[in-house]
């Protein structure tokens, strides 16, 4: 049976997924503890505390990118799902590079001023580009390649995202924000939340299309990214000045949880899908067969 061998490692795929969930829950707990209790700030310095948080985020980020790579390799190169998950995985690897780049920047500029635009920004933007591309491939596949109007709608959305970013940049300059910065720097700063919003909305759209289907779950990760980033954007825009402290605490908590959870959700979904494709019924992840059994004669 091609590629459907029995798993020959110590744990079954189902157990591996369950262990991964446990590990991720522990990591989330550690993340929260490190963020709120700041244990290393007291013992060493805030720099090391920040570094620990970065590492706790980097672990699920690498996990998700590895799971994406494994999943992509399960498809033939000519198949459409191959392109979807390849773009998704490339996007994740760029974000892993962004996470690492952020740590490097912390090491280089912790005590000085961070550069306005660095390689890290390139990694994030390329990540958005490829994740957006995977969303585009997915939508195109769902609505059929022949459906020109749907493609136009999507391309229109991309164009709107760029135009809105340019418009917001213009408004920001008029309002005196970002004085002394180049237009492109401000544009990129505005582009992040706009991309978040666009990709988050598209991911929600796809999730609704897929319903509770197994193949919709990696997109849930993107929705969580958008959620975490929207809190950050709200903070940058000065929104915290208009809400009570209790609400700020709730938003902080959501942001701290949602950001690493987004990698975790995407990673677990990609890993499950990889196991299903690799081991089929032997993965233990296909419960539907039992439920949907054709009534015996």
């Amino acid at each position: 049976m091609q590629n459907l061998n029995k798993p020959n490692f110590k744990f079954t795929p189902l157990q591996i997924v369950q262990i991964s969930v446990t590990v991720f829950v522990i990591l989330l707990g550690l993340n929260l503890w490190t963020f709120y209790a700041e244990p290393l700030s007291k013992v060493l310095s805030p720099y090391w505390n920040d570094n620990l948080i970065d590492i706790l985020v980097l672990i699920p980020a690498v996990g998700a990118a590895v799971a994406g790579t494994l999943l992509t390799r399960q498809f033939e190169k000519g198949e459409t799902p191959y392109h979807i998950w390849q773009a998704f995985t490339i996007g994740l690897w760029f974000w892993v590079a962004g996470e690492i780049g952020g740590m490097v920047n912390d090491a280089l500029y912790w005590d000085t001023i961070y550069p306005d635009f660095s390689l890290v920004d390139m990694f994030w933007l390329l990540g958005y580009f490829f994740l957006g591309l995977s969303l585009y491939y997915q939508l195109r596949l769902v609505y059929g390649a022949k459906s020109r109007s749907r493609r136009r709608i999507y391309l229109g959305l991309v164009a709107i995202a760029l135009l809105v970013s340019a418009g917001l940049t213009h408004l920001a300059i008029k309002a005196g924000l970002g004085e002394g910065y180049a237009w492109i720097i401000l544009f990129v700063t505005v582009l992040y939340p706009v991309f978040d919003l666009t990709e988050g909305a598209t991911a929600i759209w796809i999730s609704f299309l897929f319903g509770r289907g197994q193949w919709s779950r990696p997109w849930w990760g993107l929705i969580l990214f958008a959620l975490a980033d929207s809190v950050n954007t709200f903070y940058w825009l000065g929104g915290y000045g208009f809400i009570p402290v209790a609400a700020q605490t709730v938003l902080n908590f959501i942001s701290v949880i949602a950001y690493p959870a987004s990698y975790m959700v995407a990673g677990l979904a990609l890993l499950s899908n990889y196991f299903i494709l690799r081991y089929g019924e032997n993965s233990g992840l296909l419960k539907v067969a039992i439920k949907s059994e054709i009534n015996k004669p």
């Binding site: 059929g144 609704f208 299309l209 319903g211 289907g213 197994q214 054709i294």
Partner: peptide
């Protein structure tokens, strides 16, 4: 029986909405 089982299998993978869409299309 066959289409029902097929629908259930597809539901699991691509979800209810897309299955419905695929069947209708």
């Amino acid at each position: 029986a066959l289409f029902m089982a097929m629908g259930a299998q597809m539901n699991f993978v691509i979800g209810n909405n897309l299955t419905q869409r695929l069947l209708s299309e």
